[in-house]
C-alpha cells in the first residue's frame, strides 16, 4: 500500500505547484469572467452577472482598437523577423561558419537583455529633441537628394500615433530576431549535408540550393517559430508598455490588448471585465495558431 503511493508522493510537488500557479488562475479567471468584482471589496463582493462582461467586452471600442493595434504590431514585428532570420541563418550557417557562434551570440544578446534597459535605450535614441535618430536625420537632411525625403522638423517618434507603432515594432523585431535566428540555424544544421553535396554535383547554384533544399527542409521549424511569433505577438505587453509609459501613448496607438487587459484589472479595478478580455484574447490566439498550422503545417502526414 505504502509502496504504491510513493510515486505519487514524489510527483506531488509538481502537481501541487502546477495546481496553484497553473490550473487555479485559469479556473479563477474563467469564474471571474461571469462576475462583477471590485477586488478592493474582498471576495464576498463578487456578484454573478452572467454574460454581461463578455457583451461589454465585445461592444467596447477600446477592445477592438487594442486588438487592431496588437494585430498590426504582431504582423509588422513578426513577419520581418522571419524574412530576415531565414536568409541570415543561411548566410551564417553556410558562409560565415568561422564566426558563427560569435555572430549568433551577438544577435541573441537583445533577447536576454532586460526590457527596462532596452526601453530606456530606445526612448533615448528616439527622443524628439535630444535623440540620436533625429540627430542623424538632421545630418542626412543636409545632403542634396535626401533633403527632399526627410522632414526638416524633428520627428516626435513616440508622441505621434503614426510613428509610435513602427518604433515599437522595430524594438520587438530587434529583440526577437536573434531568437528566431538560433532556431533556424539549429534546424539548418540538422539538414543532411549529402543533399547539398548531391545538388552541387548536379550543378545547382547557390540560390537554387537555398530555394529547393534549405527552405523545404526548414518548413517544420518555420511552422514552429511562426507559431511562437503568433502567440508572442498577440500577447505583446512589455515593449509597448514601457515605451509608452504604461499608458498606451498618444491616441492609445501603442496600447495592445494585453496592456488594456492589465490596466482594466489593476488601474480600473474591474477584474471581471479583464478576465473576459483575457478569454477573448485566448480565443483569438487559439484561432490564429490553428490558422497558422492549417496554412503551413503538414498536409498529408501528421507528426
Amino acid at each position: 500500500m505504502f509502496k504504491a503511493s510513493v510515486p505519487y508522493l514524489f510527483l506531488s510537488p509538481f502537481f501541487l505547484l502546477f495546481g496553484i500557479f497553473g490550473i487555479f488562475p485559469i479556473v479563477f479567471s474563467f469564474v471571474l469572467m461571469f462576475q462583477q468584482w471590485d477586488p478592493v471589496q474582498g471576495f464576498g463582493a463578487m456578484q454573478f452577472v452572467g454574460f454581461e462582461n463578455i457583451l461589454f467586452t465585445l461592444e467596447d471600442p477600446w477592445v477592438w482598437k487594442s486588438l487592431a493595434n496588437t494585430f498590426w504590431l504582431a504582423v509588422a514585428s513578426g513577419l520581418p523577423q522571419h524574412l530576415v532570420a531565414v536568409p541570415l541563418a543561411y548566410l551564417i550557417n553556410e558562409k560565415l561558419q568561422g564566426s558563427r557562434n560569435a555572430l549568433m551570440g551577438a544577435y541573441f544578446l537583445p533577447y536576454i537583455t532586460s526590457t527596462v534597459a532596452i526601453a530606456m535605450m530606445f526612448t533615448t535614441l528616439f527622443s524628439t529633441d535630444y535623440g540620436l535618430v533625429n540627430a542623424l536625420l538632421e545630418t542626412l537632411q543636409q545632403w542634396p537628394i535626401l533633403s527632399w525625403l526627410i522632414p526638416k522638423q524633428h520627428i516626435d517618434w513616440l508622441g505621434t500615433p503614426e510613428t509610435v507603432k513602427p518604433v515599437i515594432a522595430l524594438v520587438v523585431f530587434w529583440r526577437y530576431l536573434g531568437f528566431n535566428l538560433i532556431l533556424y540555424v539549429a534546424a539548418m544544421q540538422s539538414i543532411p549535408r549529402e543533399l547539398y553535396e548531391a545538388a552541387r554535383m548536379d550543378g545547382a547554384r547557390e540560390w537554387r540550393i537555398f530555394w529547393s533544399i534549405t527552405l523545404p527542409q526548414l518548413k517544420p521549424m518555420m511552422v514552429f517559430s511562426l507559431t511562437l511569433s503568433v502567440i508572442g505577438g498577440l500577447q505583446l505587453f512589455e515593449e509597448p508598455f514601457i515605451l509608452t509609459g504604461g499608458k498606451g501613448g498618444v491616441e492609445q496607438a501603442g496600447m495592445t490588448t494585453a496592456m488594456y487587459m492589465y490596466r482594466t484589472a489593476f488601474e480600473f479595478n474591474d477584474f471581471g471585465l479583464a478576465s473576459a478580455m483575457s478569454w477573448l484574447l485566448f480565443l483569438m490566439i487559439a484561432v490564429m495558431t490553428w490558422l497558422t498550422n492549417r496554412a503551413l503545417g503538414p498536409q498529408q502526414e501528421s507528426i
Binding site: 471590485d38 477586488p39 478592493v40 471589496q41 474582498g42 471576495f43 489593476f266 479595478n269
Partner: peptide
C-alpha cells in the same frame, strides 16, 4: 489591492495616495 481582495497580508497601517483613495474607500 490584492491584500484587500484576499484579506491576507493586510498591514495595520496603510499609506494611500489620493488617486487611489476613492477606489479603496468606496470598496468598504
Amino acid at each position: 489591492t490584492t491584500a484587500l481582495a484576499t484579506s491576507s497580508n493586510l498591514p495595520d497601517v496603510m499609506a494611500v495616495e489620493y488617486g487611489y483613495l476613492g477606489r479603496f474607500a468606496m470598496g468598504g
